[in-house]
Amino acid sequence: MLPVDPAQKLSFKRCIADGDLVIVYERHDTMKAVKVCENSVLQNRFGVFKHSDWIGRPFGSKVLSNKGGFVYLLAPTPELWTLVLSHRTQILYIADISFVIMYLEVVPGCLVLESGTGSGSLTTSLARAVAPTGHVYTFDFHEQRAVSAREDFERTGLNDLVTVGVRDIQGDGFPDDFFGKVDSVFLDLPQPWLAIPSAGKMLKQDGILCSFSPCIEQVQRSCETLRANFTDIRTFEVLLRPYEVKEGKMESCQADESGSTGSLPRKRRQRSSEEGSNGREISNSPTTVMARPSPEAKGHTGYLTFARLRCLS
């Protein structure tokens, strides 16, 4: 997924090869991650797609099924991965992810701790941010979830940048090996205040912690705990409002030659049948591209609380 090996970099010449991970794009809300395998096929409502037809084509190509249906084959990115990964838990989406990485000041070379791993949505973006020289250590107390996450990072080729550990961070804290070495910590735990003292020990001075909590009561308790050793404590909520765009014709309200405004329905009929061949103001009525917010959107994901470890020396 990441061009850690510059030879794997996206390019006009970079073609899909056997064993590559591709994102099969049907629609903006229908995508799937597929490992390309010479003898394998993909079957969906558009027909049967042979993987062997994909090999040797550039990423971004349109490919056809036996019935003439088509999909696009995209190169995986952390953003696309977030949309296709298997949900083992509630996951973080792009608005929160982007803000967390910016606010945690994660840059190449950073050492980052995360708990819990969950489905690895944020982890994938953290890995991109610390690459090529940094590392993400992520912990989940759920053995099976950790195993699945490891498999995913193997699949997305991030296993050199991410290490998954099985550990109850709320109960046992982070491993002592990280004492004072960590640039940033991310917590997505039901009782983050239990893990905050340990996170404080792992951070470098002025290092940043972020805690993601859906409920304000969790935030309240976390902030009380943070005040002991942290400064610059700030809580945010970040959302994305999606927009719909469409092209439409709209009747203008100019009085026409007859001066009658009541002729509106007739005009509309004329236009649809005769493509505006008569009536100047109708044929001139241009189409407009219009945008409006989508009626449905996420109203809440969680609160993001950030804090910096106080400098004591």
């Binding site: 803000f99 935030v219 902030c223 700030r234 970040v238 959302l239 609160y303």
Partner: peptide, 18 residues
Amino acid sequence: AVGLQISEPWLREYQVLP
């Protein structure tokens, strides 16, 4: 292009005190 989307970010900060 595919996956086209216009979005508007929204950000609100909270005062958290007892």
